[in-house]
Amino acid sequence: MKVRGAIGSQPVVTLIDLGATHNFIASHLVASMGISIDETEPYGVRMGTGDSERGTSVCKGVVLHLKELHITEDFLPLRLGSSDVILGMQWLETLGVTKTNWKEQTMEFEVNGRIARIEGDKSLGKSLISLKAMARTLSKDPYGYLIELSNTEYQVIPPDPVPLFLQDILSQFECIFQEPTGLPPPRAMEYKIITKEGTTPVSVRPYRYPHYQKGEIRMIKEMLQAKVIQPNNSPYSSPVILVKKKRWLLAFLHRLSSTKQGYGARQVSHSCNW
């Protein structure tokens, strides 16, 4: 839980940490405010980041103000990162019975016969880190995540201009390069499949398509709207066959015509690669 406080007239960010055995104060804050220090036996502290810090001094009788609450404690000066002061078990065990709601970040306890209440500042839960500090942390820990969030903008890039030597050709044959909007022009000879008189359609069971092929069949509707194909109601077989190759092969069955000549019913397809 982080709260805003002050030491004298200097605003500080205070972290109330159940995992800290002692109270700590940022060494840069001690130097800038001229807080007196006393030499002590060398000690080592393992920080929450996994780093180990060593110290040889202590700041005694530092008064920390948390709103209307005045706390006088001894602090060990160390490099603390995003917090200026850490209140650990050294202070918490002096409070006796406390009522803490970590979700709402509130703490209540009795001081001199009255209930004191500390409310955490949720906005202090996020802090900036310098690139140098991040590189130092990643060099000691082989695992880490770097996530960058930013606003993205896109710009429509116009297509490359057509080379000059192709512009005349494209202009001359412009109709060829347009999207088709109808059936091919009539031919001198139409293709037919000749069947014998009295021939009946071959019995072919319905060809069911799995769900993942429905997207390919959607092209039929688009081609009908463009009028590049026309409806086929041939009784001989399904009008469309999908063949799985490197790309989908879409096959359209030609209409069969019945005449007095020929060799019986045959199934012929016209294929398009998609």
Rank of each mutant, 00 (worst) to 15 (best):
W91L: 07
C175A: 06
E41K: 15
I169W: 10
L250R: 01
Y191P: 07
E93Y: 14
S271I: 08
G81H: 00
N151K: 13
T56Y: 04
L87R: 05
D168L: 03
L149G: 13
Q267C: 07
S237V: 15
T72S: 07
I194T: 06
N232P: 09
G8R: 01
F173M: 06
M219H: 07
G8D: 08
E148F: 11
L149W: 04
D74E: 08
P231W: 05
T152H: 01
L249H: 05
M89P: 05
V12P: 07
S83F: 13
P186R: 04
V240C: 02
A20N: 02
T181F: 00
I169R: 08
H211M: 09
R205C: 04
Y212P: 07
S27A: 15
G5L: 02
S271Q: 10
L78D: 06
V204I: 12
S139P: 00
L170K: 03
I37M: 05
M219N: 07
T49A: 09
V202P: 01
K60F: 00
M107S: 01
I147V: 15
A6G: 03
L170W: 01
L256T: 14
M33Q: 14
P210K: 10
S258T: 11
V62P: 00
T200I: 13
E119M: 09
N273G: 08
